[in-house]
């Protein structure tokens, strides 16, 4: 039963991104590269936030502290991705078979957003998925057995939200509408992230810190 839960949750969280990847990204090498770079960018942002969390020893047990930095770094790196893509636009066009690339700016925003989202989703869910393989489920100290499926659904939301945020963010920057949209977007982002992090950041940060400690 628990193995079914593991595969069900994996499908729920990563089925949609996988389908989107297969249908819209996989056929263009340049898009794949952009997506991987974006995913790597998210990893770097998380590395930095975990370093800060690890360095400030007295606040280590207050995970809200690490969470705030995680959001700040994530958005900084999203801006970094924007700059990077705009700088390399011409070069990408050169090497791409698809000469239209970059003609629609939202295309790149979508691809990099999906990369961002997939990586953050993977980090959010991998611990939970590992525990969903059983034999136990939540309940001994409260919680219900629907925790895993809810987590997977939340992760899917997070992946899609990251994609949308990238699109809105890039578009706002392109149109120089800083005052209105990005602010709204940032507000959305941080409050959603807050909610989100309640569940998952503790896991990641502890996991990451363990990795660091082991090394």
């Amino acid at each position: 039963m628990t193995l079914a839960e593991f595969f069900g949750c994996s499908l729920l969280a990563f089925g949609t991104p996988l389908v989107m990847f297969a249908l819209t990204i996989a056929n263009d090498p340049v898009r794949i590269i952009i997506m991987i770079v974006a995913a790597f960018g998210w990893l770097l942002s998380f590395l930095l936030s975990s370093l800060i969390w690890y360095a400030v020893v007295p606040l280590r047990s207050y995970l809200a502290f690490g969470m705030v930095f995680a959001i700040i770094f994530q958005e900084l790196f999203r801006y970094g991705m924007y700059l990077l893509l705009r700088r390399t636009e011409a070069g990408l066009k050169e090497i791409s078979e698809n000469q239209d690339i970059g003609s629609n700016k939202m295309e790149m925003a979508y691809v990099s957003g999906l990369g961002f989202g997939t990586m953050s989703g993977a980090f959010a869910l991998v611990n939970v998925l590992a525990d969903s393989a059983g034999p136990g489920t939540l309940g001994l100290q409260g919680g219900t057995e629907y925790f895993f499926v809810t987590s997977a659904a939340m992760t899917l939301c997070m992946i899609l939200l990251n994609t949308f945020w990238s699109v809105i963010f890039f578009s706002g920057l392109d149109d120089k509408k800083y005052s209105k949209d990005p602010e709204k977007k940032l507000h959305n982002s941080s409050s959603y992230n807050c909610l989100r992090m309640i569940n998952f950041v503790p896991n990641h940060l502890q996991e990451l810190s363990k990795i660091h400690l082991n090394q």
Binding site: M1, T2, A4, E5, F7, G8, C9, S10, L11, L12, G15, G134, P135, G136, T137, L138, G139, L140, T144, E145, Y146, F147, F148, V149, A152, A153
Partner: peptide, 15 residues
């Protein structure tokens, strides 16, 4: 606590 299977069913169907 071992799962009753409700979570797994929901996960597979919704997935």
């Amino acid at each position: 606590v071992s799962a009753g299977g409700g979570g797994a069913t929901v996960a597979v169907i919704s997935g």
